[in-house]
Amino acid sequence: MRIHAEVNGEAREFETKGSESLLFVLADQLGLPGAKGACEQGECGSCSVMLDGRLVCSCLVMAVDVDGSEIVTVEGLGRSGLHPVQKALVDSGAVQCGFCTPGFVVAAAALLDENPVPSSDEIREALSGNICRCTGYGAILRGLDSLAGNR
């Protein structure tokens, strides 16, 4: 089935084969490998994207359901230089293996869209759906706290 969607501000179209996820289509057909597939059950947050303004796990979105939708992936956040969240994570040395980083970047950017000055607790709650298997949470939270002016 032919699906039309706005992806990172551009009109894109793709063909679905069946019930595959948006995550699969992003990497396989749209050349956007930023969202990462790991658990494929919504547990890890590595595949986080914005769908119609809401942070979701792209592994849990059936690709056929995004016809007419707006999608923003991590690639869409850093198009004119680093996004402030990316800069903050670089500055705090928040990347170890880096696999979870795109998901954290999208989740944190979604939080700041809604709440530009989140408290430390609000940051933790907003990132509760993202798992870092290197357990590098300290540096991630430090980076975002300093971006939000919490110190």
């Binding site: 919504g42 947050g45 986080s48 769908l51 809401r54 942070l55 979701v56 796990c57 849990l60 979105v61 989740a107 979604a110 709650e125 907003a126 509760s128 759906g129 993202n130």
Partner: peptide
């Protein structure tokens, strides 16, 4: 319930 991602969907 779940996480922000799960609750949004």
């Amino acid at each position: 319930i779940g996480s922000p991602q799960i609750r949004a969907a």
